[in-house]
Design a protein around this nucleic acid. Sequence first.
DNA 1: CCGCCGAGG
DNA 2: CCCTCGGCG
Lengths: 422, 422
Amino acid sequence: MSSGDSEGEVQESDLPSAAECEERCQKFAEVTGTDTALAMFFLQDRQWIVARALDAFFAQNPGYGESMQEYPTLNAAEDPLAAAQSMGSGEGSETKVPDVQPHRVRVMSWNIDGLDTANLKQRTRAVINTIKAEKVEVALLQEVVANSESVLRESLTDYKIISGGTSSKEGYYTAILLHKQHTHLDDFETVPYFSSTMGRNLLVVNSTVKGVPMTLMTSHLESTKSHAGERKRQLGIGLNRMKDASTERTVLFGGDLNLRDKELESIGGLPEGIVDVWEETGSRKEARYTWDTYRNDNLATDGKWRTRLRFDRLYLRQCSPPAKLKPVYFELVGLQRVPDVHRFPSDHWGILAHFDILSGSGDSRPFGALSAKEAEESQAKSSSLKPENSKSSDAPASSGKKSGNPEAQPSEGPPPAKRPKD
Amino acid sequence: MSSGDSEGEVQESDLPSAAECEERCQKFAEVTGTDTALAMFFLQDRQWIVARALDAFFAQNPGYGESMQEYPTLNAAEDPLAAAQSMGSGEGSETKVPDVQPHRVRVMSWNIDGLDTANLKQRTRAVINTIKAEKVEVALLQEVVANSESVLRESLTDYKIISGGTSSKEGYYTAILLHKQHTHLDDFETVPYFSSTMGRNLLVVNSTVKGVPMTLMTSHLESTKSHAGERKRQLGIGLNRMKDASTERTVLFGGDLNLRDKELESIGGLPEGIVDVWEETGSRKEARYTWDTYRNDNLATDGKWRTRLRFDRLYLRQCSPPAKLKPVYFELVGLQRVPDVHRFPSDHWGILAHFDILSGSGDSRPFGALSAKEAEESQAKSSSLKPENSKSSDAPASSGKKSGNPEAQPSEGPPPAKRPKD
DNA sequence: CCGCCGAGG
DNA sequence: CCCTCGGCG
Ligand SMILES: [Mg+2]
Ligand SMILES: [Mg+2]
C-alpha cells in the first residue's frame, strides 16, 4: 500500500525529525478532529506533508461530519449525494413521489452566503441539489439574495418559498422552504428587530408537516463578536416567541445564530422546555462546528485566521404532551466542494436534523385542522399568506447514505425510520 | 408551610408582576444552576426577593456542588465537615490513624488566595480543616504565601510540604502536600517558565502514594485572558512533562490553569493519553466551575461583573498498562463561608478527586521501590529532596458526607471504596 | 466573519 | 481576576 505510490517514497534523509513529525501529526489530528495514529497513517506515505495528507483525508472522507463513515473510496459517479450536488437537475413542475419514510421529518438550516457573489449560482445549485437529495420537508435559509432566490424558485418547484425579506428584496434575507407534498402553509409573519443595524429580522411560519402542526422560525442574528449585545437581545425575542407559541404546535427555531456558548450562558441558557437539537441527539463532535475556517476556505483568509464556531443551531420546543417529534439525528451538509468551482456551497456548513414522528401523531396528511383554540389565537395576528405557483418538471436525486467501511466510527447516519405502530 | 413564616406573608398587592416573578425565577435558577420550579419554591415564601431566596438556598445547600445532596437542614454541630472547617484544631505531632479506605486515593487542588491579605489566617485554617476532614493523600496548592505557609506547616504536621517557591519565599507560589503516613517522597524539582511575567513555574514531585508510583505536578498558570499566549505555552510545558514522565508512574497535573476551553482547543486539545479528571468522572455540572463570582463574593466586585469559569483542572496520565488508578469522583470544596469571617476560604473553589487503586497495584506500603529503569532515568535529574520535620499534636476531624434527603439528585458523593479483590 | 490586545468599567 | 468595546493583523 505504501510502496505502490511512487510519489510517496522518500529518502530517509528527507524525513522530518521525530519531533517535527509529531507536531505535524498533531496538526493533522487537530484539523480533522481525528487522532495522531490516523494522522501518521495519512502522513507517512505523503512525505509528511500536512497539506497532502489533509487533501487525501478529506477526499476519502467527503462526508466526514455528515455521517461519520470513514475511507469510502468514492467519486461522484458512485455517490448519489455527490452526484446530486453536481448534477444540473432540470427545472420542472411539481413532482409527486411516494414517501418512503412517512414517519420521518427532515429540517435543514443553512446560511447559503449570498453576500459572496463569486460562483453564486453554482453554489446555490449545490444547495438546491442537497435539499432535493436529502428530501427535506423544511429548509430554513439565511443570506438569500435576489440572484440566489431566483435560482431557488426556478429549481425548487416542489417547495413553497416564504421569503423573510421585507424591503423589496434588497440586500440579503431569510427564507423558509416547505415541501408542497408534505406540508401545508398555515400562515406566516416577520418580526422586526428594531435595534438591528444589519437589517435582521425573525421569520415565523405556521405549517402542518406530515400532519404535525408546527411553528417554524428562522433568523440570521446580528453578526460578529462585537455585536453580542444586540445578538442576545434578538435571540431572546426568538426564544420568547418559541415559549409563547401555541402549545398545540411543535416549534423549531433554527438559523445562523452567530452565537458563542458564553453568550447563551450569560442569558441564563435556554429556557426550560427548549432544547438544542444538536445536544439532544448526543452532541456528536463531528457535527459540532458549523463555521470552520480550518476546513472551509471559501472566505479566502489565506489561513491567516483559523477557527471553528457553532454558529448554526436548531432549537426545539415540543407541543403539549404527548410530544409529536423525536429528534433522532443531526448532521452537517455542504461538506463537499462544488465540482469545477472547487469551493464549498457556502462558508457555513448546513445543519440537517432528522425527527421521528411519534406514535399517534402524524397522519401523513399535510393538512391538520387547526383547533378552535388556535384559530382564536391566530386571528389576532395580521399574517399574510403567499402561496407559490408551480412550474416545469423536476427529477429529485436519489438519497441514501454512502456505504462505510470496517473502520467506521460508532454510528453511520440517521437510523432507519420506523412506523411507530409496527 | 408558607403561612407559618410570618415574615414570608405578603399582601397580594405587594407581589411583583407575573413577568417580574418569572424574571426573578430565571435569575435564581441561573445563579444556583437549578430550575425555575425550584426557584419559585424558594421565592414564594420570601417576598420574591432574590437575595433572600439565594441565601436560603445556599444556607440549606452548603454542599451544593460538593456532593449534590439537597436541602439537608444542618449546621456546624450536625455537620462533621462544617464542624471541621470551623474548629480551631490543635497543632500537634504526627498522628497515626487506621486507614479506613486503603484502596482510595484523594487528590485536591486549590488556589488558596494568599494574595488577599484579609482574613488570610482564618481562611487558611479553613483550607487546613478541609484537607484534614477529607483526609487527602495529596494536596496541590497555589497562591501560598509566607504568612499562609507558616500556618500550613504549624497545623498540617501529618503532611510533608514541598514548596514551589524559589526566590527565598517572596511573593506567592505553589506547594504540594504529601500525607506522611500514606506517601513517600521520592524527589522533586521546579521547572521555570522563562517568559512568565508573573513569576510562575511548574512544581514536579515524584512520590509513591499507597504503593502507587506517581508524578505529581502543579502550577499556577499565567493569569487573565490577555495572557492566553503565555498561558498556553506554559500549559504545553506541563503537558509535555506529563507525556515524558516515566511510564512506570501515574501522573497527575493539577492546579489553577486559568484556562478557557477555547484555549485548550486552540492547541489541539489534550494530547492522547492525557485526560481531564472532571470529564473522566462524568462532567458533573455541579462541579464544573471552580471560579464563580455568582456564588463567591470574596473578590468584592459588588456584583459588577459576574461570571463562571473552570480555571482549576486536574489531568491524568496513566502508567503503562495495567493502569493503577481509576478516577471515580470529582467534587468541589470550600463552598461554605468561614464562620465569623463570613467569607469563603478562597475566591476559587478547591477541586477534590477520588481514585480507586486498581487490583494488584497498591500494597498499602507508602514506599514502592524504584525500578532499575527509573533509577536510571531519575539520576539524570538534579533533584533535591527536602524532608519535613514533625511537630506538635493534631486531631484530624472526622470525615464522612452529610446525609442527604429524599429529593437528592442522581448521585451523592464518592462511591464507597472497595477492596479490588473482594 | 476571525483572534489578539489594551483601555475602561 | 471579570467583561465589553474598538483598533488592527
Ligand atoms: Mg455570511
Ligand atoms: Mg488569585
